[in-house]
Design a protein around this nucleic acid. Structure first.
Length: 259
DNA sequence: ATGGTCGTTACACGA
């Protein structure tokens, strides 16, 4: 089975790329983040014609998550609501959607950005991660994957220039400790060993062309699932502005293979 | 310190 995760930065603006991506790599399950659309706004017929079931949750003009699967999509669950200060406080905003696909419980996660270390959103980010960890620790016995945009650079190697991030989120010790907590509990990050490269490059300043990026998109697997991983890679071509028509997402997809 | 570029029921704001 091949699963993938991709912060797509608007599913509507990149629906053609998503269709091409899942076909190009024969992806069985795709977790999406920053979908920025309600299901009723999405032209999903193409993906359905390709055999994908779709579950969409949590939307405003910045966030939103989704799961596509051609190997079953059961027991869909939405959780970990967004901070109310984003968008319409009355709208239900989710930053996580989970489903069971061919026996594997997969969660598409869009960890809060945090904005700045002195911002309330930063506190919210750490609290959100603590709540996720407490819940996810109960899933270690099963075949569980926590995939998505973690908005954390766990090591200095995951930042093109640590000095530039001295006063920024993504690299602070509390964020790194929050990420490490999942590993301490027994989850394994299964992509780095196969592809240590960045997964995100800012749109400005030709950051992709100069490979000035961040590694912030990860796949954490429970022990049983981790033992099934045979490979992983970052699809950098999907981030290359020169490779395909139209603007790319600022994130590249991450693909993982399981026996 | 600033600005650069994407996206969105947008002409400001989040990433």
């Amino acid at each position: 089975m091949r699963i993938a995760t991709w912060n797509v930065n608007s599913l509507r603006s990149r629906i053609d790329r998503v269709e091409a991506f899942v076909q190009r790599h024969e992806v069985d399950v795709l977790a999406l983040q920053e979908t920025k659309a309600r299901e009723d706004q999405l032209p999903l017929m193409g993906l359905q014609a390709l055999g994908y079931e779709i579950a969409v949750a949590g939307f405003n003009q910045w966030n939103g998550v989704a799961l596509l699967s051609r190997v079953g999509l059961e027991d869909v669950e939405v959780g970990f609501a967004d901070m109310p200060s984003y968008g319409d406080p009355a709208a239900e905003e989710a930053r996580a959607i989970g489903a069971t696909c061919a026996g594997v419980r997969i969660w598409s996660l869009y960890v809060p950005n945090g904005r700045k270390p002195d911002d309330p959103h930063y506190v919210y980010k750490l609290d959100w991660l603590a709540r996720l960890r407490a819940t996810a620790s109960a899933w270690l016995d099963g075949e569980t994957a926590l995939v998505g945009d973690w908005n954390i650079c766990p090591t200095d190697d995951d930042v093109f220039d640590v000095k530039q991030f001295a006063k920024s989120t993504h690299v602070t010790p509390p964020e790194r400790a929050a990420f490490q907590g999942f590993l301490d509990d027994g989850y394994a990050e299964v992509t780095r060993a196969h592809d240590p490269g960045y997964t995100y490059w800012d749109y400005y300043r030709q950051r992709f062309e100069r490979d000035r990026g961040l590694k912030i998109d990860f796949v954490l697997a429970s022990p049983t699932l981790a033992s099934r991983v045979t490979g992983a890679f970052v699809d950098r071509e999907e981030r290359d502005p020169a490779r395909y028509a139209g603007a790319p997402s600022d994130h590249a997809p991450v693909v993982v293979d399981l026996v």
